[in-house]
Design a protein around this nucleic acid. Structure first.
Lengths: 176, 176
DNA sequence: CCGCTCATGTAACTGGTTACATGATTTA
DNA sequence: TAAATCATGTAACCAGTTACATGAGCGG
């Protein structure tokens, strides 16, 4: 295992926080996540977990007491060390500006007539507002649990959403 | 051409703003961009342009006056319409929270001893500061040109970077 | 004239996705 | 008892990347 991908590191983190855990449960973490970057498709998660297992970062255990048979995964010592390395190894690209489909479109807004431009800005703003509302709920829920770091994560997402919304408003103000 | 990918739409936008343009020049736009999301690799751009040409969104013209031979691309009417459609068709996922590698790591910061945690936050902050400095320069440069929308785009990126930085500071304050 | 930028092109790979298939257990 | 959820698994695909190769023209 030379270098963990972002998905691999994240899965390691999920196993660390929810261990012992099934692959299905790992998937649902992505499915329920506010970020749509990873789909949590079984086609991604299953082979990935197999890889981490083969590299000795995860250990598997069969559980069969009464319930349906399922495989539970845990971090090995090596896995824990790899997780910490993955987190701690900060590189320049991690601070890079991510791709924002709304921003990508703003660059070429001059190709639209003013009315379409306004409509675009309004609709994008509405979408962001909806996302912000949902994220606020999410932050509240996480703040009530004792998972401080998940709450910080959600707050980070909220901050970015609000920055995007504020920026859109500035453009709208400039347009009118 | 059923539905444009983000890269396809962006390339259409680049051709719209810099037409007539070579594929190489399209690539350098990505290479010099503040976002590292698309590499602008020839392996991506060349087949993509071929696709847009085959679908009639772009037209090609050979230029051979004295200089080295090169192919110049322009938007067709259909291409212009497709660009506008691509921009104007706002969907929910566009407002979704993007993947942030720093945030992804924050979720699992509890797995680190306090000292490593502090180090992580400091280093991530430094990376963001560097990115912010460069982006400010970028915004200034674009504000001086008359490309209002490119300047707005850059300001949007800056706003997001600052939101991420602010959020990290809040965590650091909470940690001390 | 040497190295850099401009310019074009492709083969191999990769890290995912979509879509499909199966079946046990739980809940309404 | 039907529908939803839990749980596992794979094949086909896809939109990119990395890496490589070539060569013309330009600036120091």
């Amino acid at each position: 295992m030379d270098r963990l991908s972002e998905l691999e590191g994240t899965v390691l983190g999920i196993v660390w926080s929810d261990s012992p855990i099934t692959r299905y449960a790992i998937r649902t973490r992505f499915l329920n996540s506010r970020s749509s970057h990873f789909s949590g498709s079984s086609g991604a998660v299953y082979p990935l977990v197999a890889r981490l297992l083969a590299s000795g970062l995860l250990s598997a255990e069969q559980s069969q007491q009464g319930k349906r048979p399922r495989t539970l995964y845990r971090l090995t010592q090596l896995g824990e060390r790899s997780l910490r390395d993955w987190i701690v190894n900060v590189e320049g690209w991690m601070a890079a500006v991510e791709f924002d489909p709304i921003r990508a479109r703003v660059f070429f807004l001059a190709s639209l007539p003013k009315r379409s431009r306004r409509k675009f800005l309004r609709e994008a703003g509405d979408r962001l507002d909806a996302e912000i509302t949902e994220t606020i709920t999410h932050v509240k829920a996480l703040t009530e649990t004792k998972d401080t770091w998940a709450a910080w994560g959600a707050r980070g997402a909220l901050g970015v959403l609000r920055a995007r919304r504020k920026w859109l408003r500035e453009i709208e103000a400039d347009e009118s």
